[in-house]
């Protein structure tokens, strides 16, 4: 499970919806094994960027390379095969399945066996299933969610669901992990856990982490590089210390969205 982290090169990515430009010429590089944050006010294009990176949106222009392999134009399952794993903003669990089955879905592309192999219990499908369950247990233990495996996913509390979601993304054995607001809606002590988890993922597994997050404390505390988006454009990319003192960032982002940010963190739903 220790695949080395991938280098992510995003160049000149532009996304348009019915005349609205969601992303315009976005360019940055995330170095292997680092934690790279993407921040920006609501509507800056962070979600669009993630949807491009997981193959759900096809940009009008631009290129995205994972260790040199072009990602644009690939179907989502091929993007996953390139080593891009994703945890979702609202920790959407597959509600009809158990936690273990949710995690097993992370292993889906690595498993073997179609309808016949499953229905006839062919040995290779059973072996693949056994291996998948073992790997899932390992990932679940790594993130401390192994005691939840037998539960129906629909009954998970929000905070636990967020962790299971990250575990599910890790189960795909990514070299690049996309985390979409992993700390959103969390209490302070849960945020500390999230921070430690992300650090462990990058440190122990050398996975490149691309992080979208509103919590500035978390972002500045763990990221090696920060890319600031505003109105679909990159304002700047740099280490946290430099970004926070950048005039353009303060003007474009912190100045305008600071108030909204504050309001948002105060009205967080209880998990």
């Amino acid at each position: 499970m220790t695949a080395p982290g991938a280098r992510l090169q995003v160049s000149d990515v532009t996304v348009r919806f019915a005349g609205v430009t969601a992303l315009s010429g976005v360019t940055f590089t995330a170095e292997p094994g680092t934690i790279h944050a993407v921040i920006g006010p609501n509507g800056a294009g962070k979600s669009s960027l993630f949807n491009v990176l997981s193959g759900i949106y096809k940009p009008a222009e631009g290129s995205v390379r994972v260790d040199g392999s072009e990602l644009i134009g690939l179907a989502p399952h091929r993007v996953t095969a390139l080593g891009v794993g994703r945890a979702f903003q609202n920790a959407s669990m597959f509600a009809g399945l158990t936690v273990e089955e949710n995690l097993l879905l992370g292993r889906h592309r690595l498993g073997r066996g179609g309808v016949f192999a499953a229905g006839l219990r062919l040995p290779y499908a059973r072996r693949s299933e056994r291996e998948a369950r073992a790997k899932v247990r390992e990932v679940a233990e790594f993130l401390g969610v192994d005691h939840l495996l037998a539960l129906p996913a629909a009954e998970l509390p929000y905070g636990e669901a967020k962790r299971v979601d990250i575990a599910r993304a890790l189960a795909t054995e990514p070299r690049l992990l996309l985390l979409d607001e992993p700390a959103a809606g969390m209490h302070t002590h849960e945020k500390v856990e999230v921070r430690d988890t992300i650090r462990r993922i990058a440190a122990e597994r050398q996975i490149t982490v691309l992080l979208v997050e509103h919590d500035m404390g978390l972002v500045m505390g763990i990221s090696e590089q920060v890319t600031v988006l505003d109105f679909g454009q990159v304002v700047t990319t740099g280490p946290p210390g430099r970004v926070t003192s950048d005039e353009a960032v303060i003007a474009a982002y912190l100045g305008r969205a600071g108030a909204a940010q504050k309001a948002r963190s105060e009205s967080q739903p209880p998990s």
């Binding site: 399952h77 959407s92 669990m93 597959f94 399945l97 089955e101 889906h108 592309r109 795909t172």
Partner: peptide
């Protein structure tokens, strides 16, 4: 499981491969 994932959220299922 893939069937159920498509039913419960096709976009997320696709993003998981």
């Amino acid at each position: 499981r893939a069937f159920a994932a498509i039913r419960d959220g096709e976009v997320h299922a696709a993003a998981l491969g």
